[in-house]
């Protein structure tokens, strides 16, 4: 294509121009990111060290998020949601954001079903961990990876 030659030579002047332009862009400093350990510590705090089961949590997350500013996160948990047997709380965490917490939800039997959907910010490709707390004090969790791409002009 005709513009190839134009683009193949990024001169020093161009590079410097880009660099100065970059200076005008707002950066919030160099952020520290949470990691698996931060999430593990968080889970330990929530569960009090009790064992966490797997399964019965259905996650609805995009495999690839074109933009990390609003990524759908939805889950549903199979539960009768009766006074004797219901999901009390769900914690959504992310291991690659500046802090691991995303949101938590408190459910009641009046809802009849356990699910929720929201939109979250993801700083980069990372794992989303969903931890559910049952009314009997037991826990279960599920996780999935969301690949976050950063736009050329959009990002």
């Amino acid at each position: 294509m005709k513009q190839t030659t134009q683009f193949s030579s990024i001169s020093r002047r161009h590079a410097l121009a880009m660099l100065s332009a970059a200076g005008a862009v707002v950066l919030a400093g160099v952020p520290a990111y949470a990691d698996g350990a931060a999430v593990a510590a968080k889970i330990k705090g929530l569960t009090g060290g009790r064992s966490v089961g797997e399964g019965d949590i259905e996650l609805d997350l995009p495999e690839i998020a074109e933009n990390g500013n609003a990524v759908k996160v939805a889950f549903s948990i199979n539960s009768p949601m009766t006074v004797d047997n219901y999901v009390k709380a769900v914690h959504v965490m992310a291991d690659g954001n500046p802090t691991p917490d995303v949101a938590s939800f408190n459910f009641t039997p009046a809802m009849g079903a356990c699910s929720a959907s929201t939109r979250m910010r993801l700083a980069k490709t990372q794992n989303i961990i969903v931890l559910a707390e049952m009314n009997d004090g037991s826990f279960k969790q599920a996780q999935a990876t969301v690949k976050v791409t950063i736009g050329g002009c959009g990002g």
């Binding site: 990524v71 917490d101 459910f107 929201t118």
Partner: peptide, 11 residues
């Protein structure tokens, strides 16, 4: 009946 606690990571 339902409560959501949002952190800054919510859009």
């Amino acid at each position: 009946v339902f409560t959501a606690n949002f952190e800054p990571a919510v859009s």
